[in-house]
Amino acid sequence: MLLDSRHPFTRGATLVINALLMITFLSLASQVWAHKVNVFAWVEGDMVFVEGYYPGGKKAQNSPVEVYNSAGVKLLEGRTNEKGEFSFKIPAKEDLRIVLTAGVAHKNDFIITAAELGLSESLSDAPVTKISEKVAAPSSATVDMGQLEVMIDQALDRKLKPVIQLIRNTRKEGPGVTEIIGGIGYILGLFGLLMYFKSRKDRERGQRSAEYGQAVII
């Protein structure tokens, strides 16, 4: 009954399959997939901001975040808010590994290097201070180094914001059409290769048995 092409149910089934295929192709862009979670972290002032999201850009809300130092000691932990974000004050000026766990079986990490964290500290290093003191000495209006540092940091944060935003957005893209088509190509190629080797083996075996058959006849 089901296999009868005139039956409306079978026609319905075909329609559904076609519709599914259509939906697949239409929904390829900007989607949420729950098989991978991404972490991104950046420094603003003396705070580190962490963001968790799935491919396609959906936020990883209320997910546990753990921060480890380079020796693997846990420094602090917390949870992302409803925007998928979590922030903390820089606990130590060393490489930080930020681990985010999203639901069951999904986990990813992001490493923020000491260089990123210590950007502001290098300014107040001893040699730099000496030079600037020499320069600043003749002028009557001496600029407080600490103040200058804060101002530069703020300006940099402001200028870098769009760049960080750009990086965040780029990282949110899911698999593109190139990867999908490429993957299908790999699959066809692999199985084509397998078929080639299998058929060659079969042919050799066929030849051998044919020769054997001739030998027997002779």
Binding site: L20, Q31, P175
Partner: peptide, 15 residues
């Protein structure tokens, strides 16, 4: 096998 592997490969993208 190849056709169904391709189907499996793409299926994970359907959320």
């Amino acid at each position: 096998v190849a056709v169904l592997t391709a189907a499996f490969f793409v299926a994970s993208l359907i959320r």
